[in-house]
Computed example of a mutant assay.
Amino acid sequence: MAIFCGGLAQLLAGMWEFPRGNTFAGAAFTSYGAFWLSYATVQLPFTGVRAAYTDTEEFAAAIGIYLITWCLVTFWFFIAALRKSVAFIALFGFLTVTFLVLAIGDFYLAVNVTKAGGILGVITAFIAYYIGLSELLAAEDMAVIRLPLGVFPKRVA
């Protein structure tokens, strides 16, 4: 799932958004596609990444640093989303907090904190699914319903 749905599919979606002039979506999809590809690579036993660490605490700390890095990247997307829509603000806000909580769970080897991060991740996924469904319906001429994203009006200079 991480390699193909999370990684490859998002990477391709990002590449398809750039020619359409949708830089935000292109950068976001490409970035998170790369995240999932790299995260899966770290976790796969045959890559030897996990085996390179002497103990589980050291590996967990390394994953914590990795997740903090993605927390920062996501926060930058959150800043960029502040002028897009309420839905994108919610998405990148929840995703930022998700990465932060998961990182804390890894740093402290706190299973309950990691579970809380997982719950936040599920909430984030539902927000992303809502946005995706909204975009799919908006692209259809005969869509029965439209789902609002809370888009901010563009400023006219």
Rank of each mutant, 00 (worst) to 15 (best):
M1L: 07
M1S: 09
M1I: 07
A2L: 09
F4E: 00
F4Q: 05
C5N: 10
A9N: 00
A9L: 11
A9G: 02
Q10H: 15
L11C: 05
L12N: 01
A13V: 09
M15P: 06
M15L: 14
E17S: 04
P19W: 08
G21L: 03
G21F: 14
N22A: 06
G26F: 00
A27L: 13
S31Q: 10
Y32V: 12
G33N: 05
A34I: 15
Y39D: 12
Y39M: 10
P45C: 03
P45K: 15
F46G: 11
F46L: 13
F46P: 14
F46W: 09
T47K: 12
T47N: 12
T47I: 01
T47V: 14
Y53G: 03
T54W: 01
T54K: 03
A61Y: 08
A61K: 15
A61S: 13
A61L: 12
A62Y: 15
I63Q: 12
I63E: 14
I63M: 15
G64V: 13
G64A: 08
I65M: 07
Y66K: 07
I68G: 04
T69F: 11
T69L: 06
T69R: 06
W70S: 05
C71N: 04
C71A: 13
L72Q: 04
T74P: 13
T74E: 08
F75H: 03
F75L: 14
W76A: 14
F77C: 08
A80R: 12
A81Y: 01
L82G: 06
R83M: 09
V86H: 03
A87P: 06
A87R: 02
F88G: 06
A90V: 03
A90P: 02
L91P: 05
F92Y: 05
F92S: 08
F94T: 14
L95R: 00
L95P: 00
V97I: 15
V97E: 08
V97H: 05
T98V: 14
F99R: 01
L100Q: 05
V101Y: 00
V101W: 10
L102C: 14
L102T: 09
A103F: 06
A103P: 11
D106P: 02
F107S: 04
F107Y: 15
A110S: 10
A110Y: 13
V111I: 13
N112Y: 08
N112E: 14
V113E: 01
T114V: 02
K115E: 02
K115D: 03
A116E: 01
G117L: 11
G118N: 05
L120Y: 13
I127W: 13
A128Y: 00
Y129C: 07
Y129G: 02
Y130S: 03
I131N: 09
G132L: 11
L133Y: 10
L133Q: 04
E135K: 12
E140S: 09
M142W: 03
V144I: 08
R146W: 02
P148L: 02
P148C: 07
L149P: 11
G150K: 01
G150T: 02
V151M: 05
F152Y: 15
R155T: 13
V156E: 14
